[in-house]
């Protein structure tokens, strides 16, 4: 797997941006080398023939047990907002989302 992938600072930075992580230059450098090690290590899975194997996503054999469409009591607004970094008039407040027009 890892053989085809070029792990470099550009890739690490692209991933960091997708993950909303603001990496320092030092962190980026360290990640490049650790990425290589780890991807190299997991490439051992290439040895395993999985041609006719279906993936096992779940840990239990259960199937979905939906609930009835019944209204339950909601949580008081102030309990929810108690954890909010900023709130006003019962809204959660954040710096303005940038909108291009």
């Amino acid at each position: 797997m890892s053989s085809e992938i070029r792990v470099d600072e550009k890739l690490v930075q692209e991933i960091a941006s997708l993950a909303r992580l603001d990496l320092t230059e030092d962190e980026t450098r360290v990640f490049v080398s650790q990425f290589k090690d780890i991807l190299d290590y997991v490439s051992i899975l290439n040895e395993v023939d999985t041609e006719n194997v279906s993936p096992a996503y779940l840990s239990s054999s259960s199937k979905n047990a939906p609930r009835e469409d019944v209204i339950e009591v909601s949580v008081p607004t102030e309990e929810f907002l108690a954890n909010a970094p900023e709130s006003k008039d019962d809204y959660v407040l954040i710096p303005r989302v940038h909108i291009e027009q």
């Binding site: 209204i71 949580v75 959660v92």
Partner: peptide
């Protein structure tokens, strides 16, 4: 048009007229 939300029991309300953050849960 369900009474409660997709993945929890909170009531589905008119989000234009309802007071903010009243129909919420974890």
């Amino acid at each position: 048009l369900t009474k409660s939300k997709m993945f929890c029991g909170c009531e589905v309300v008119d989000s234009i007229t309802a007071k903010p953050n009243r129909y919420i849960c974890p």
